[in-house]
Design a protein around this nucleic acid. Structure first.
Lengths: 235, 235
DNA sequence: TCAAAAGTGTTCTCCCTACACCCATGG
DNA sequence: CCATGGGTGTAGGGAGAACACTTTTGA
């Protein structure tokens, strides 16, 4: 570990400064389950373990810029939604040196990333079956999921996770996947239509071989209005 | 560790490391208005400006420990409630060097601090009339208030801000002070009593010379239960 | 003709809302 | 006796929860 030469350590301070990184928890929805994007570490420590994409803060960028840059560099993704949710600071959480990590929750339309896995190994995992994670990333994942569940109660988020056109069933499945509960099909439809954030399209699809289903898209104005003011999703 | 101590008492790193501080936004309720505790700066920069108590993270403490330590050192207060709410990272937010600030929202029972103002000038200000603040602390205050308002919708927080025994009117005034809206007296009482988190005491007080009022305390079990599960405060 | 999926409507109940009356006290 | 503040009750409406029928299609 200690390959450093003294003369390379050219950034000097009067008091000890921790390193600062950002990590991105990236959620995507495959139509059935909520997934999270992980990267296989190619370096020590935790070599071979899965972890969230992230990296060190550069001197001239804000934390959010850093998070988006790392996300782009490591996954070629541009998220629909970005929210800083917690900063992790336990002194021993990184075995190398003291590292403060500012964690972000991001949502992407999962189809955006089809084939995006390149040289570095990046993979989607269903949130209920993620492998052993590096560092304290299991705690970070738990916190991100809790925040996502909290958010979904009061802000519409489907727009950030679903394709442009979708069926009511897909929307319901998304909510059920995130919250881990089951809704009555009829009441769910009534509620969503009543919120007035959906536009029924003239198109239909055959999601199953049984019967065609109407397609909907989000009414962007109403959607952002609700997002701004917040709303109550009771259920 | 990665830092090396050289003769001038300096800590050196291969890459630039920002300084990391914590700041505490401390809210208290005086029975009429929501107040925030500020400290007058005795050093440059922003000498003479008001700011939140806070300071640099020590190598062996977590951010929360740091926040509580600074809070104790600068105000002798022990908060009832502590929540990390945002980390501020714009590169130029401190003119001296790059500083990352992890901000905490804390609630105290305001009577705890009567006379706690000592050598360093610390004062309570009503949140709607705070003076010019140092750094980006005006943004931090706005964010803290937004978080507090968000929290109060779904988690009981009166316990952390009110004295042990209080009247329904005091509880209502607290909610009105935080949310900045007015409630119907009768509906507010009905709602609060229906939530079953209050215990009516046998005692009464004369809050005005007109008529005595019942005293209540929080039903701690129900209160923490609701706090854990969250609840919906509609209004 | 049967099973599976999708679209739609009704009833009940609870809670939020608006609003009014009574009582006790001090002036 | 009246103004002020505190305690309590009621009627109406809206939204969530529970629940059933119809239609379409492929096997």
């Amino acid at each position: 570990m200690f390959f450093l030469k003294v003369d390379e350590n050219k950034y000097c301070y009067k008091y000890p400064h921790p390193a600062v990184t950002t990590d991105c928890v990236i959620f995507g929805f495959d139509g059935v389950r909520l997934n999270v994007l992980l990267i296989k570490r190619g370096l020590q420590p935790y070599l071979g373990y899965w972890a969230f994409p992230g990296g060190f803060l550069k001197p001239e960028e804000s934390a959010e810029e850093c998070a988006l840059r790392e996300l782009r560099e490591e996954t070629q993704l541009t998220p629909e939604y970005v929210e800083q949710f917690h900063t992790y600071s336990l002194p021993k959480r990184d075995p190398r040196e003291r590292v403060i990590t500012i964690a972000y929750l991001t949502l992407v339309k999962l189809q955006d990333v089809k084939g995006g896995d390149d040289a570095e190994e990046a993979r989607w995992f269903p949130v209920d079956s993620v492998p052993q994670l590096a560092f304290d990333h299991d705690v970070i994942l738990r916190d991100a999921l809790a925040r996502l569940r909290e958010r979904i109660h009061f802000h519409p988020i489907g727009y950030d996770l679903l394709p442009e056109k979708f069926t009511l069933k897909e929307l319901q499945t998304l909510y059920e996947a995130i919250l881990g509960i089951h809704f009555d099909r009829r009441n769910f439809a009534k509620k969503m239509l009543h919120l007035d954030i959906l536009t029924q399209l003239d198109e239909t699809v055959w999601p199953t071989p049984k019967r065609e289903a109407n397609l909907y898209s989000f009414n962007r104005d109403k959607y952002t209005e609700l997002k701004r003011r917040g709303f109550r999703l009771e259920f």
